[in-house]
């Protein structure tokens, strides 16, 4: 799956020639506020800031790369980049193929968004392909409608193709607060074990470095500050 890669004009933090320790950070770039491509065409968002901070503290040179969500794990495994830092929840199923750092974002709620609050959540539910939410919907008995991007799933609800969309609550929040026409439906569902950095199982050294720095940032509270900056004061913190 290598080179199914969608690299942006992502800037290398330092101009790339540092020897051994260049870590290529893979992200999706379409999941605000976790990660997105800003109007300059660079990767931006909570995970960009966090990733840069982690790399700086761990003394690594990091370079940002974007990749379509549905092939993000295969491309990690074929060595296209070294980490996945893309709002990826830690699940047992993913743990079978890749390793995760400890979580840098507490277990987040997933939620349904629909055009009306009493929408039929066992009807047709849209979800992004390959997410834990899509898994959940497939098992829940509802009819799963899969789309490649989050945007497609929301569009499907707006045009009536699906009764509701099920996704990470923070990622859906802008559509509810800004769109006006859609609202939350049903109760939140806690899924996954928080969000962590995905790595190849063989990269134990890298995992050790990131784990140490995340522990440090959790202890001194700087991680919480960063979460509040991007997700608002109500966000869950450590």
């Amino acid at each position: 799956m290598k080179k199914l890669i969608l690299t942006t004009a992502a800037l290398a933090l330092c101009t790339g020639f540092a020897m051994a320790d260049t870590v290529r950070m893979g992200t999706e770039g379409a999941y605000p506020p976790y990660n997105f491509i800003n109007d300059k065409g660079e990767v931006d968002g909570f995970e960009r800031e966090l990733g840069d901070t982690l790399c700086e503290k761990a003394g690594l040179t990091c370079e940002w790369v974007t990749n379509e969500w549905d092939s993000i794990i295969p491309n990690l495994l074929s060595g296209n980049y070294d980490t996945i830092i893309a709002g990826m929840s830690i699940t047992d199923e993913r743990m079978e193929t890749i390793a995760f750092s400890q979580n840098y974002y507490p277990p987040a709620a997933s939620a349904y968004v629909a055009m009306k609050p009493d929408a039929d959540l066992t009807g047709v539910v849209a979800a992004q392909v390959g997410t834990i939410q899509a898994d959940y919907v497939a098992k829940s008995g509802a009819t799963l409608l899969e789309f490649a991007t989050l945007d497609d799933t929301v569009a499907a609800v707006k045009n009536g193709e699906a009764d509701a969309v099920f996704a990470d609550k923070d990622a859906l929040a802008p559509f509810v607060t800004e769109g006006g026409e859609m609202g939350w439906a049903g109760a939140d569902v806690p899924l996954g074990g928080g969000i962590g950095i995905g790595m190849r199982k063989s990269d134990t050294e890298l995992k050790g470095k990131f784990d140490a720095v995340i522990t440090e940032m959790k202890a001194d509270g700087s991680l919480n500050t960063m979460i509040k900056k991007w997700f608002g004061d109500d966000a869950a913190t450590f």
Partner: peptide
């Protein structure tokens, strides 16, 4: 195990090379 592992020197292009 589903991983494709070659050593760092065999990567094309090397992961240290510019984007």
């Amino acid at each position: 195990n589903g991983e494709f592992n070659v050593c760092a020197a065999a990567k094309i292009p090397l992961s240290t090379s510019p984007q």
